[in-house]
Design a protein around this nucleic acid. Structure first.
Lengths: 416, 416
DNA sequence: ACAGTTTCCCGTAAATGC
DNA sequence: TGCATTTACGGGAAACTG
């Protein structure tokens, strides 16, 4: 329903009313898209039956922000629908809750743009949603309110990776509840701080963290300063000398994992982050047909390649296949690509050069359970037509190597 | 900009004012999508300089429709933006024009639905847009207006084929300018009438009409009545005994041609509409490797297959490949699929069984100019990676045939 | 001219209504 | 419940805007 995860369990914090017990609860920043619906759950942590259905809570976008933070130049948003709800008891009966749905925010006309060069990008703007209500208790007028943690507002899904970068950076660098100008003077992060968040991202999309080898390769790409700190601009906008945006690059890989490689990543079959030099070093001494999986370092949209080693006539070669992109893997999953991959050399010799996953696991042992047909039925076939399936082939530019171990790998083996 | 073609050159017809010369101009029905912009061009055919910038024209949706046609039960729409424009002289200076852009129509709340079973589907509802203006001339108050031909309003692109069916049917069956209730009692069409429209559709998307053989095959599918007429319900909703909707089926093929086969269709390389029996008959006597292209008769989304003949040991076999869908052809175009297609049999023998396009044109002569790389450069390759390309293979269920003509078709030939 | 940002819209999926 | 129709929204591209 919402663009990202739902913001649940925001606390309705009682201001200036110690009579009301309140509990800080899990809040998290969020990325919101204009003109799209999202949902916010809200809990009033004191369940006084007498309040039931008496508290009308209103959501306000960027309440008092101009006065509080003087963050001029930010865009202004408003909810287009009436954003009010009445608190009611929840299912377990322990508190009053309201779920805001169908909140739609849209930029209002006025926008005071500072023309100076230090203006932030839209994904660096931080906003808040504040929930306010007032009621009478013990003869007093009580005004209470609660705010979300900072929120980034985008207008197209293509801005989501940048927005998420801001969210991560904010979370790691500060525990302030509402420093909306953080990116006017962005703090730097130490590599231990940053690497932990990055590792969490992989845990989140692929149920497995980054290991030490992977992290040390990433450190090379992310840390430019000799002091071991990472600067916001270098992280989110592409550093000085390098022309790639490291976060966008990593973000593409996270998306690739989420969409096509979740199982393989979870099971640790993807080495992923290895330099080209390291690949050669790792594979050089291994037997012909040993291969490993590695993410492309140049493709900004997330791509994965396999590299394998061949020994012929005392000569050793390590090859890497043209990386598979998301649209490639939509056609057929990586395990099937590995199973069906075919190299061709002069004389009509065809074979699959991929035999053992590094260090020495038989390909079918490692990937067998993921092959098409192993957990699904065979493809539905239309009567009267010969079934076909897509495979990828490469025409080896090198002279024909002799078959490994003196045996030809049969190509006509049936798919499991 | 607009969903379909722009509606240009609508005539501003002068009503009750013979002083104003008016010219009937090309109007065409249109398919409009709610909440989407479209453009209408309007010409005032008398260029009286004195009118310049004095005529304010307003667009009205379904003006006077209820009184005129008593078509209750239709949805009601309104423009959400102010749909008024001032007429100005056009570039050639021969008339006054206005171009309406950003017209957005959205269903208004009220909708009187007749609950009887004869209710029309939304794509059978016909609507009109009327342009009105008034001015003073020769001391008289003049009210003039012009209307579009009937328009079908849809809410999602998936309704477009059905809507287009209505548009075609209307055009062929009547020359009345505004019979919005046509589908309450839809007229039938003779096969010559219908087949001509269908043929035009292929001319429109693929620059080539249907030939007599193709039409005679389609006649079998479309004409159910012995009297040779086609009924609207059987055309647009799937006839009595058959469970396929013939127009949607044909519509999918038209879309397939438009997106992936425009060149091949234009050049007549696709036989397309042939029955399975006819295929066997045609190919039976031809030499091994003769093939033809034919649309799937079962796939509703548009799919194309090739069938080829093989003679082995005095036995003749005709095979048809699993049809290629739009998403298949997005991966690699049909000519490349034909070039790279590979069949595999026991013993690791691989070959391409497609040699001659029916009746006996060498495959590369027929399709060579379309192969990838013939008019584009070779694929851009990332340095350090072995290029790969996708091909389709089939595992022949039959005993291994001997190579045709005693020669092995080399598979390692380089792509042109 | 250009880059950042938003709008537009197809196509698919989900929700809605009858 | 099932089907017809609408809404929602990701993704890519065009349009916008300073």
């Amino acid at each position: 329903q919402s663009l990202m995860t739902k913001l649940l369990s925001s606390a309705l914090v009682v201001e200036k009313q110690p009579v009301m017990a309140s509990m800080p609860s899990i809040q998290q920043p969020l990325v919101l898209k204009t003109k799209a619906n999202f949902t916010v759950g809200l809990r009033f942590l004191v369940n006084l039956e007498k309040f039931r259905c008496l508290l009308k809570v209103k959501a306000v976008f960027d309440k008092d922000v101009a006065e509080k933070t003087k963050t001029n130049g930010f865009r202004h948003f408003d909810f287009t629908k009436e954003p009010s709800k009445v608190l009611d008891v929840n299912v377990t009966g322990d508190c009053l809750v309201a779920e805001f749905t169908d909140l739609v925010n849209q930029e209002s006309k006025k926008r005071v743009r500072k023309s100076d060069e230090s203006a932030l990008t839209v994904t660096e703007e931080l906003h808040v949603i504040t929930f306010v209500t007032c009621f009478q208790h013990a003869g007093l007028d009580c005004h209470i309110q609660a705010s979300t943690l900072p929120v980034v507002v985008i207008s197209a899904t293509g801005q989501l990776p940048s927005a998420w970068a801001s969210v991560m950076w904010y979370n790691v660098s500060t525990s302030e509840p509402m420093n909306l100008s953080l990116f006017s003077d962005p703090p730097r992060l130490s590599w231990p701080e940053l690497s932990q968040v990055l590792s969490w991202q992989f845990l989140s999309v692929g149920k497995r963290r980054l290991d030490d080898n992977q992290l040390s390769m990433l450190r090379e790409k992310f840390v430019e300063d000799p002091d071991g700190f990472v600067h916001w601009n270098s992280f989110s906008k592409g550093g000085c000398q390098k022309n790639v945006n490291v976060w966008l690059w990593l973000s593409g890989i996270l998306d690739l994992i989420k969409k096509h490689l979740a199982d393989l990543w979870r099971d640790g079959l993807i080495m992923g982050f290895v330099s080209r030099e390291k690949i050669k070093e790792l594979l050089w001494e291994k037997k012909t047909g040993t291969f490993l999986l590695r993410f492309s370092e140049t493709n900004q949209d997330g791509a994965i390649s396999y590299s394998w080693v061949e020994h012929h006539n005392g000569e050793t070669q390590v090859h890497s296949i043209e990386p598979y992109t998301k649209s490639d893997l939509e056609k057929s999953p990586l395990p099937d690509e590995i199973y069906d991959f075919t190299s061709r050399v002069h004389g009509n010799v065809t074979r699959n050069p991929l035999l053992y996953l590094y260090p020495d696991v038989d390909k079918d042992v490692a990937f067998g359970r993921y092959y098409y047909g192993s957990d699904k039925q065979t493809l539905p076939r239309v009567w009267g037509y010969l079934p076909r399936r897509p495979i990828n082939v490469t025409d080896m530019p090198t002279p024909p190597p002799s078959p490994p171990h003196g045996q030809q790998v049969p190509l006509d083996a049936q798919h499991p």
